[in-house]
């Protein structure tokens, strides 16, 4: 007697849709020395995606190769100060292979005394 068997394969497909952020980075990117994206690639990417909006900066750091920083931020905080803050904090979590997206929130507090 010959045994018979029936088999079937089903594939379930799930789609998740979300909006592609333009530009894909926010305020800054921290690029590791062995990340898939390097200084040159980042430079060309931002030049194409958001011309004149970001500055790509090569840095001297043991694990971080470059920073991509929104230019508008550098008008609010001096460039070198901003770089050192991002490196100081980013350097604690970043490693050679990662690319980190950074959100920076800058609150300007102004206090004035006026004579009435």
């Amino acid at each position: 007697m010959v045994a018979s068997s029936v088999s079937s394969t089903k594939t379930e497909i799930t789609l998740r849709l979300s909006e592609f952020e333009m530009p894909p980075m926010q305020d800054a990117l921290i690029i590791g020395r062995k990340a898939p994206l390097g200084f040159e690639a980042a430079k060309r990417m931002v030049d194409i995606i958001s011309p004149n909006k970001y500055e790509v900066i090569k840095v001297q750091h043991p694990t971080i190769e470059a920073l991509v920083i929104r230019k508008a931020l550098m008008r609010m905080v001096p460039r070198d100060r901003l770089i050192s803050i991002i490196l100081e904090e980013g350097g604690k979590v970043a490693n050679e292979t990662t690319i980190f997206k950074v959100q920076l929130s800058i609150v300007l507090c102004v206090s004035k005394t006026v004579e009435l």
């Binding site: 062995k34 898939p36 390097g38 200084f39």
Partner: peptide, 12 residues
């Protein structure tokens, strides 16, 4: 040897 294969030649 020491680079990510996705990188651009310009970067390594």
């Amino acid at each position: 040897i020491s680079s990510n294969p996705n990188r651009l030649v310009a970067d390594v």
